[in-house]
């Protein structure tokens, strides 16, 4: 069915726009000879995909122990120590039995049909700020640990090519191919509904970003999602209160006392730096955390700026040149650094 030559033949039979080799015209039946043969080495470097049957998996041996250390260092800032997710970053664990709920929690354990997807995704895209930075072995370790967080494997489980492909995910059988069209409306023109029974619902107040309607208005953060997040935060605070655990609260950035340089850096911060410095990702000093910043500020602005522009490896983490955003000008980086420093004193 997919043999190209057959398809072409049938198209010709139907007379559907297929070029014919007449004077000066060119038949596509023969290759155009464009492009080079890709070498095995070239393909191997980019061929990173994994399939449910294990095709594509490299050699390796992942353990929960090694995965735990790596997870806490590289993943927990966003995904939470137990895979519970920080802020709006994805929740990785839990949620079993919630798929029919009003608010389902879709996680690796509750939703994902195949364990191979986890290896594939971590390998191609994680950690978010440094994709393709983990070795194949490290991907095995982290994958094993995330499966463990989901209670899919036991503590002594060793993840290999063979064992990964044999894992049965709990939700595996609950996916089915798109059956659409699944609803049938008709093109009724008159008396299509009983006007007495029409029910009209409007929007909730204060969800739509209105910055473009009224100059200077803030985008309000109220929504189904935001409401969920708020409740999660409240629940965390409540639990912390019970256990006496200290919880870092969201740092408020004070806009009132910022210099002109710093104010100019706010947009760059929001667009480029916040992804790490807003949450302390990859060991970065978090904006508003004066303790984390004071030692750095003491070394002086020139050094701070030099590290921001040219990159720096510290005890707690790595600052890539311009945070990986080489498209930023030095001036923009300077402004953003000023913004972060002044907001963290």
């Amino acid at each position: 069915m997919f043999k190209l030559r057959d398809t072409r033949t049938s198209l010709i039979a139907l007379g559907v726009g297929v070029s014919v080799a007449i004077m000066g015209a060119f038949s596509h039946a023969e290759p155009l000879g464009l492009g080079e043969t890709a070498t095995e080495e070239q393909i191997a470097g980019w061929d990173i995909d994994i399939r449910p049957d294990g095709k594509g998996l490299p050699d390796g041996r992942g353990t929960i122990e090694a995965g735990e250390a790596l997870y806490e260092e590289r993943c927990a800032t966003c995904h939470g120590l137990f895979g519970e997710g920080e802020g709006r970053w994805p929740v990785l664990a839990g949620g079993q039995g919630t798929l029919k709920d009003e608010r389902p929690t879709k996680t690796v354990g509750s939703y994902w049909p195949y364990a191979s997807t986890l290896y594939d995704y971590i390998r191609r895209a994680m950690p978010f700020t440094a994709p393709r930075s983990l070795s194949d072995q490290q991907v095995y370790d982290v994958t094993a640990y995330v499966l463990y967080l989901n209670e899919i494997v036991e503590e002594d489980f060793v993840l290999t090519k063979e064992s990964l492909a044999s894992i049965e995910m709990p939700n595996k059988d609950n996916f089915f191919v798109d059956p659409r069209p699944d609803v049938k409306n008709t093109r009724c023109m008159d008396k299509c509904a009983d006007p007495k029974k029409l029910m009209i619902a409007g929007t909730l107040k204060g969800i739509t970003p209105v910055g473009h309607f009224v100059e200077g208005a803030d985008a309000p953060a109220a929504s189904h999602d935001a409401q969920m997040e708020k409740e999660r935060e409240e629940e965390k605070l409540r639990k912390a209160h019970i256990t006496g655990e200290a919880l870092s609260t969201q740092h408020k950035v004070k806009a009132a006392s910022l210099s002109e340089l710093a104010l100019a850096g706010k947009a760059t911060y929001e667009g480029a730096c916040k992804v790490c410095h807003g949450s302390g990702l990859t060991g970065s000093p978090k904006v508003g955390d004066s303790d984390a910043w004071s030692a750095r500020i003491k070394k002086g602005m020139p050094q701070l700026l030099d590290h921001a522009i040219h990159g720096f490896s510290g005890d707690t983490g790595v600052m890539p040149p311009k945070g990986g955003r080489v498209d930023l000008s030095d001036k923009q980086v300077e402004q953003a650094v000023a913004y972060m420093v002044e907001s963290s004193q």
Binding site: D49, R51, W112, P113, Y114, S116, T117, D120, Y121
Partner: peptide, 9 residues
């Protein structure tokens, strides 16, 4: 098919 993250999760 490969069943990657953007066609499962």
């Amino acid at each position: 098919p490969w069943y990657h993250r953007e066609e499962t999760s």
